[in-house]
Design a protein around this nucleic acid. Sequence first.
RNA 1: GCUCGGGUGGUGGAAUAGGUAGACACGCAGGACUUAAAAUCCUGUGGGCAGUAAUGCCUGUACGGGUUCGAUUCCCGUCCCGAGCACCA
Length: 920
Amino acid sequence: MEYNFTKIEQRWQRYWAKNKTFKSEIDHTKAKFYVLDMFPYPSGAGLHVGHPLGYIASDIFSRFKRLKGFNVLHPMGYDAFGLPAEQYAIQTGQHPAVTTALNITRYREQMDKIGFSYDWDREVQTCDPDYYKWTQWAFIEMFHSYYCYDEQQARPISELEEVFAMQGACGINVACSETLTFSAAEWNAMSEQEKQEVLMNYRIAYLGETSVNWCSVLGTVLANDEVKDGFSVRGGHPVEQRMMKQWQLRVSAYAERLLNSLETLAWSDSLKEMQRNWIGKSEGAEMLFKVRNGVEEYDMCIFTTRADTVFGATFMVLAPESEWVEKLTVPEQRAAVEAYLLAAKKKTERERMTETHKASGVSTGSYAINPFTKEQIPVWISEYVLAGYGTGAIMAVPAHDSRDYLFAKQFNLPIVPLIEGCDISSESFDAKEGVMCNSGFLNGLSVQEAIPAAIDEVERLGIGKRKVNYRLRDAIFSRQRYWGEPFPIYYKEGVAVPMPIEALPLALPEVDKYAPTETGEPPLGRSKDWNYQGYPIEKSTMPGFAGSSAYYLRYMDPLNSDALVSREANDYWQDVDLYIGGTEHATGHLIYSRFWNKFLFDRGYVCQDEPFKKLVNQGMIQGRSNFVYRIMNTNTFVSLGLKDQYETTELHVDVNIVENDRLDIEAFKAWRPEFGDAEFVLEEGQYICGWAVEKMSKSMYNVVNPDQICIDYGADTLRMYEMFLGPLEQAKPWDTNGIDGVFRFLKKVWRLFFDKDQFFVHQEAPSAQELKALHKLIQKVENDIEQFSFNTSVSGFMIFVNELMDLKCRKQAILEPFLILLSPFAPHITEELWSLLGHSQSISKATYPKYNQAYTVENIFEYPVSVNGKLRFKKELPLGISADEVEKAILSDDQLDKYLGGATVKKVVVVPGRIVNVVC
RNA sequence: GCUCGGGUGGUGGAAUAGGUAGACACGCAGGACUUAAAAUCCUGUGGGCAGUAAUGCCUGUACGGGUUCGAUUCCCGUCCCGAGCACCA
């Protein structure tokens, strides 16, 4: 009987859906295990062959854990709000909900064909009002909260109001936009509106003026991680900086906790490192420098991480946007400074970035006093100093900072080395190592000792204090778009007093068009009845990361209409044990989600501080493009091996008409009209195409669709092949050249159960050799799955099947456990064979076979050996080796002497071919 | 520039703890079955040398050193590739 994968796969997919085989319920008799995929944005292009890579891995893991007796939660849903559907809506007038629903249907069909074991009863869609009700709810909770640094947690803002009424704002240690100082009396005297304005300074979700990335083409602001090199990530439109009043989330309050608890997570080092960079903690000091413009004297504050180098600070530099520029520019320099500021302003973000290796600047004409050397040092302006970081002003230490060095060389400023023996003739010495010199009381200390010593002195002199800076900024939460969650906020007295709307969900209104209004308002401005009890409602919507920040919690209890997740469900499912998805979310979703979860944890809504215990990044699947070579000015194509004999141009050719790099010539002629009469220079009767690894994209004709693989080879082959391709975390090109090997393997599996056309298995007891093969496999597969080394488990299966074929083994006692082992990888074929063996229940309800070491330890021998104090190793030690045979030497006598040093060997532990240990 | 990965046959990739390098698969070559093809099965396959042959020897994990009886694996230096960050003081 043939291996008819189409029929088998249809049958079992229907069976699983009908019987709800993978439905998961709270079950206190079993340990839980939560396996989560990053849910997809349902784009119009459908799934390509790269998407399922992570889904297959997580599915294998889920099925494996189920067989191991865990109660597995394995849900799937859609991140359904987003820009593409909205842009399509602007162009066509089609409601984004319609487009989105259509795409979701297509995604679902494609996923179902691959045989995933999702519990679809738990599906969520972020654009569903019953879902975004809880996104809005969390926002209101953040609105009603502030962050207390003493307690290191978010707390109800009503507590803060009490504090203000009792003691005012002095001396409180809480997160805020700007430090306010008012007394209890002043607070109590404020009007309601004034109080609301003050509270906004402390709320975790707050409305505030900020510099934003504004994209005028899209008509919306973007988050930092939605902008790359001055262009929007989606669409590639130019982005500029602009001050605007926006809703923000006080993520920066959580910077320290987000950084610290990274330690507890089983994430890859590179991903943790990316988050650390993004949070960007730097410990240093703020220091005051006296500055004089010839008329007046001020104290100017700077931030430095290298307080130890203060003796080498030979000049100061201000950011062009710094408020000090105005105060410190002396009359004679005014013209030059203004010219410089104008030139700096004109430069685009991009130009500033590409000119990092050039120093530019202008002197203010003012001087500062170095508080340690007491010398007068000039104050300069340069765009290499950023206004948005630290205080927008620095002390420049050219000997030990490469940017300051470049600047000093350019403008002939003095360079004073501070570390013994460092060479600063051609570049600065930036490393934090060595012994200090030229540094007064710091002389003789190492850099590591000098840094705290210098700060101590600064604090003692009262000219500064320790200070930690973070690069992480608050998340800008407003988007001027239609297709997102509306803010549950209305404005009571003009714009000044935003109030929450507690009746949720606040559903997205219908509008006639999806573009911004003619007056430049967001699209929601088009709705005529967008008001709450007559008051206007906020017209922005929430960004993409809003809906994805807590979806893993909603899966635990998706139908609950009283809470995001019930206490009971959250206590049982706890957190995500395994999260699989791409690295592209490292600094976006994965930061926001952790922040969101920590907030809910602080407020007692969830029981875990961190949402994702273990995280695995699947590598991106790239396209493998094929090329044909056209001889210049002809319609003749020359095969790869002969192309160097001609002058040719390289053309992309559709990978779907190429097999194993051989061009299907007839299909090529039919592909495009201009190739209809093409001629070919062949090698050995074939046209061989060239190839290259590129991004998978339509324009490169290298997109491979999973549906076609399912039709040609079946889902089981697709699943196993995607795993066999290489290590999960590694980026790799999609290459169908090897898929036949996996397909052959599955056909062999099928044939193991058939004699001629009859289903046939033996009932005899298995031999020792057969048991050994089986238990080796159990051990290997188990280890490999736990370590996400799915490619080597596939190899293990292949070896095992070849062994069974050599042994001509058809024994049920061997085949049955083998099917269970294989079922996570190839669920359809194993279900079919399992039922042919007479089982009435799905194989996913079976129990994972237990590894029995007794069948594999026979590989290891322990022999006491004493050979005149000398041991000689034979390179290859076969099974059943005797002590005499160990004696037969291969190492030379002098090597042995070195190794043993004349000791007497008592015991040697040997695995065939490999000495494990020698006891002397 | 900084940080983190990585460099193994024609190709994708194996190699728990330093112990037979190249598992498994693709491709290729040869063979069996077949009128033929497909499918299937068998044999060979890092490079070099010697031999009629079984086989033997040399060499080999980017490059140069080191530690070790023994290094793809550990250490130092160099080169190259990938990813992320990037005037963050």
